[in-house]
Every structure is written in C-alpha cells, then in structure tokens.
Amino acid sequence: MGEPPQAVRRSPLGHLAAELRAASVPGTVTVREVPFVRQVNVRGPGGKPFPAEPNTVATTGDAAGDAAGDAEGDTVLVWLGPDEWLVVGPGEVPGMPGAEHESVADVSAHRTVVELAGPAAREVLLKGCPIDLHPGVFPPGRCAQTLLGRAQVIIVCVDERPAYRLFVRASLAGYLAGWLIDAMREYQCHTY
C-alpha cells in the first residue's frame, strides 16, 4: 500500500509493448502505444481557439508545434463534432470566450493512443479504414472519427512521415493492437 501512483498504473497496451515493437519494421512502418496522454472532452458552443472547421485540429497558444499532443509537447484541440472537441496534452483547457463550456470531462483513461508511422502507415490504415487518407485530403492537422477494422477510432494525422495517432477505447485497444499487428505482418517478410 502507498506505492507511488506511477508504480501501479498500467496502460491498456502496456502488456503488448514487446509485440508492437516486434511488429514494427523500421523504415517501413512502426507502431507504439503513447500511454497516459491527458485527454479532456469539451462540449459547448465553441469559439476560438477551438477549431470550427470539421475534421481539423488546432494547437493552443502560439507555439508552432505538430499535431501530436504528446505529454511533453503541445496541447492540441481535436474537432470531434460541431459542439465537441478533445483537448489532448498537458496544457490548460482553454476557455470559450463569451460562452461557458457546457461539459468538461477528463477522459484521459477512457482512450489510449497508438502511433502508427512510416512510409507504409497509410497503407496499413487503408486495410481497414474506409475514409480517404490521401495526403492531399488528410494531411497533418486533419482528424476524423471513423472505423479501423471493427474498432471505432479517432485518427489524427500528425506529420508527413506520415504518422497517425489513433485514439481507441481502453477496452478495445487489445483488439486494435491485434488487428494492426496482423495488418503489418506482410511488411515483415517480402515473400508474402
């Protein structure tokens, strides 16, 4: 009893870290969990800095950063719907000028984040994602709530490698990891 919290917390895919590493093919496509990312679901009338354009992400403040929202990086605002955003990262939840949030809910543990990156990352996603991920249509800074395989996910394109962040329910993360490992298998050996 009384251990520091970090010692006893478990991320949804912590037990699969080795499998995800083994499934990664450096230079082609890599996959890893980005655990314990702070996430806050905000619902309300919106207003700056919350992005109004559907399926886009914005960063808070003036720092020019990527769209990743790492624990150490910027805080990003992911558009989820006309009145709903996901605040990802360590920063404060911005106020909505002239209008109160109607709902602010910490959902950090509700979903975990999986990062898929590399030249083949888009192709891996297209094995199970029906939306158009062409770089001209879904460049860095774009997001979508969609399906990957049979898992509901939020996909954010974070950079041009390309790298994608997949937000998936904690209870469903095991399925998604299994699906990704299976979908990435063909890059392991070229005699497929």
């Binding site: 478990r10 949804p12 037990h15 094995k127 199970g128 395989g149 049979r150 898992a151 329910r169 904690a170 209870s171 469903l172 095991g174 399925y175 299994g178 699906w179 299976d182 979908a183």
Partner: peptide, 18 residues
Amino acid sequence: GRDRGVLHDPVLTTAMHP
C-alpha cells in the same frame, strides 16, 4: 479478409482482465 478468428468480432476487456 482478416475478420476471422480473434479478429472476427472485437472483444472488450477490462483493466482487470489479465
């Protein structure tokens, strides 16, 4: 396709599942 075996239907598990 790959919707077969354990991937046929997603399974939801709790933190205590292991």
